[in-house]
């Protein structure tokens, strides 16, 4: 379920744009007519009639993006982001729908907290927004949330994103129980005793600069574990922000073996490597970290072949 504020349905004709739609195989200078917010016609020449005309010479017109991994920081850190600001940014960036992660303060682990978010989204959201709820209460990795009630209240999936579910036993229970809600688990895969709170890939750059390394294997052992459990319990999982070639291999193998699993990668992991950390710009330190060139190429390959 997605929510947004009431917006007047637009009647538009967009002219002059290069229309790109890889799914439909379109790449041409075309005009597009929108009736009451819905695409009604794509053609070489369209009469405007009463529609507002948008001149889009030199611009690309393409199907909007969907971002299933957004942090709206609401509630608790409205100084960083709000539903209004985050969805406005999404609209400006060409996204028609986003999903917000539940690692807020308080964590979205109860129907009451979720209901308040839905209420705010109905007033403020510029694009449709959906909400994930936590797998464990307070994301403490100890007790499951009431996934049934949360799903009924509109949670689209469950995730402890920001922190991994450290216990394999609890992960198994989460997979078992989530299957009764028909919602997937979105997994932040990280073995904390191997990542040690690091933000830089363990490799030559970390060695030279002195950063505590966060090795690829800290991610891939967690990916392997969770995919094994998902296969065993026939659960549905989505692996968040993949960064390492080994993790991508694990996901590809699991999918071939019939596990119901999907995965994602961030744009920055697709275009940057740990080489960027040499700038000492703190913005390029992140979890999971930017990795080596071979990892970046593996992510691109996985994007091409549909693993991601």
């Amino acid at each position: 379920m997605l929510w947004q504020k009431e917006l007047p349905a637009a009647d538009l004709v967009i002219r002059g744009a290069r229309v790109l739609d890889p799914v439909e195989g379109i790449d041409a200078r075309l005009e597009v007519r929108i009736d009451a917010g819905t695409i009604a016609e794509v053609a070489e020449r369209i009469d405007a009639n009463e529609h507002r005309v948008v001149e889009a010479d030199g611009l690309i017109l393409a199907p909007a993006f969907v971002d299933p991994h957004v942090h709206l920081r609401t509630p608790g850190r409205e100084d960083e982001e709000t539903i209004a600001s985050g969805t406005a940014a999404a609209a400006a960036g060409g996204y028609c729908a986003i999903l917000a992660m539940p690692n807020t303060d308080p964590v979205v682990d109860s129907a009451v907290t979720l209901a308040a978010l839905v209420e705010t989204a109905r007033r403020e959201a510029e694009v449709p927004v959906g909400f994930l709820a936590a797998i464990t209460r307070g994301q403490r990795g100890e007790e499951l949330t009431e996934m049934g009630e949360l799903a009924d209240s509109g949670a689209v999936a469950f995730s402890d994103d920001g922190v991994p579910v450290a216990s394999a036993g609890l992960m198994r229970r989460a997979l078992q129980y989530a299957s009764t809600t028909d919602r997937p688990l979105a997994l932040h895969c990280e073995e904390p005793t191997l990542s040690h709170g690091g933000h830089v890939h363990e490799g030559r750059v970390a060695a030279e600069l002195g950063f505590g390394g966060y090795p690829s294997v800290a991610e891939s052992v967690a990916v392997e574990r969770d995919l094994s459990l998902a296969g065993y319990e026939r659960g549905r999982v989505h692996v968040l922000h993949l960064s390492a070639a080994e993790s991508v291999d694990a996901l590809r193998r699991a999918r071939v073996a019939g596990v119901t699993a999907s995965g994602e990668a961030t744009p920055h992991h697709l275009v940057l490597t740990d080489d960027a950390v040499r700038s000492l710009d703190p913005n390029v330190k992140m979890n999971p970290p930017l990795r080596a060139e071979q990892d970046r190429l593996a992510l691109l390959e996985a994007l091409r072949d549909g693993t991601i």
């Binding site: 940057l272 700038s279 710009d281 390029v284």
Partner: peptide, 12 residues
């Protein structure tokens, strides 16, 4: 485009 992003990250 990608190059631009990378260059932005370099110190002034």
């Amino acid at each position: 485009m990608i190059r631009l992003v990378k260059d932005d990250l370099r110190p002034p």
